[in-house]
Design a protein around this nucleic acid. Structure first.
Lengths: 241, 241
DNA sequence: TGTACATCAGTGAACGCGCGTTCACTGATGTAC
DNA sequence: TGTACATCAGTGAACGCGCGTTCACTGATGTAC
């Protein structure tokens, strides 16, 4: 498979770019190419834009060829969705890593500011900062790739749960909540069901900001809303009733 | 217009139901009929199911006829959306009214229980109970009419803000937050931006429960999640940081 | 009250589009001997 | 190492579908005299 890949890549000989002539016949990695194309379609036009024909077109292949790799439209959609969910997880992990860099003093001040991973309001604990970071990552992704975000969680017909492939957004959240319990900041009673609630809060904000009537909210207000929302979770989970 | 309506209604003479023969030619209220049909289509298949042709079909009219009342597909969609948003507002008002009945002792215990408008956790203030009631109403609607709910807030292309027609969901929320401030339970500083945050929380839950991967969550867990979420807002908004 | 006529609100045929999917096919690849 | 052949991964034409929208039209309604 890898050799195919290499064979298909444009060859650069003596500075002249040479496309392999008819070797497109056997594409070699069409399944992944179709999924990638589907991701781009989703990013540009939402889940509705992910069609068998369009994906095949984008991959430079006849529509029929897609049926060698997917039983039908639904299966392609599912594959693109799984890819999108993993991308969300990656965005969350990215924020988490940036936070760790800052905390360990590995990030210069400018990068720290640019990454918007400041410690937040004074008194936010390490575990809570991590929690806020993954929430940030989630919203980051929604803002940066609204179409893909939509693709990830708009399971109109198929309510199947998330794929487990890492990084799994819901696993990251669960882990973060467990840390809060371990740190003694979240009682075990309130830990139960907290996954869903915390997810709902961040998801709601992401949806409103990217698909809802608040799509064009000015950046400053948007930023304030994000910080306020993360703060609401922090207080709501840990403050005494 | 009203006379048309009367003329078109089935006439009941001596127990025999008589449809007016060809008076369907001039429908008389086609615009509203198309919007209503669009609402039903949205409820069954989401916003994507709201097409000019399908609405006309459902109204018993040729597709072309719709163009006498709407400039095109977009305008029909917008009208159906406005109707859906008002329906959300009505669901919120309904909960509010039920709560008031209970508080005034006008509702018998059974109805009280059936309406699920109990006072919630001990110590929830009157203003907070009202706040929880409108949140409940919002989620009620999403669960009862997921397709219409989707129609109401899925403004992919047109991020125009909500129509002001009463009852306006966002106005109800703003009013409720103002009450919390008046009651001294929410500081004016935290009141700022609270609309968006509170909306995001409830919206996120509604979306996850009806369109997301949690569509098939058992009712008991769902109920717990709703109560927990409302509690998170209550604590998060009013507890000291 | 009757009549001529403008306007209004429908009709059905037709257009071009993109879709999912099936079909018979064909050329390239990999393998057994 | 060569060769025959099965299999694999593509092709393009075609199907039927529902869509938005335009067109010329027609019958019902409302109005001026």
């Amino acid at each position: 498979v890898l050799t195919w890949h290499l064979k298909l890549a444009p060859v650069n000989i003596g500075g002249v770019r040479t496309e392999p002539k008819k070797s497109r016949y056997h594409h070699g990695d069409l399944r992944n190419a179709l999924i990638a194309a589907g991701g781009e379609l989703a990013e540009q036009g939402g889940p509705g834009a992910v069609t068998v024909r369009a994906a095949a077109r984008a991959a430079g292949v006849s529509a029929t060829a897609a049926y060698r790799h997917f039983a039908g439209h639904d299966e392609l959609l599912q594959a693109v969705r799984e890819q999108a969910i993993r991308a969300v997880g990656r965005a969350m992990v990215r924020r988490l890593a940036a936070l760790e860099d800052v905390e360990a003093g590995r990030a210069p001040g400018a990068a720290r500011q640019a990454a918007q991973v400041g410690p937040g309001p004074a008194g936010r604990s390490p575990a809570m900062r991590r929690m806020a970071a993954i929430g940030r990552g989630y919203i980051d992704f929604a803002l940066a790739e609204p179409g893909l975000f939509r693709m990830a969680f708009d399971c109109v017909a198929k309510p199947e749960l998330l794929p487990g492939g890492p990084p799994d957004p819901s696993a990251l959240l669960a882990q973060s909540l467990d840390e809060l319990v371990a740190a003694g900041e979240l009682t075990p009673q309130r830990r139960a069901g907290a996954d869903l609630v915390a997810w709902a809060v961040v998801h709601g904000l992401a949806v409103l900001l990217t698909q809802g009537p608040l799509t064009e909210l000015p950046a400053a207000e948007r930023e304030q809303a994000i910080e306020q929302t993360l703060q609401l979770v922090a207080i709501g989970l840990t403050a005494p009733a």
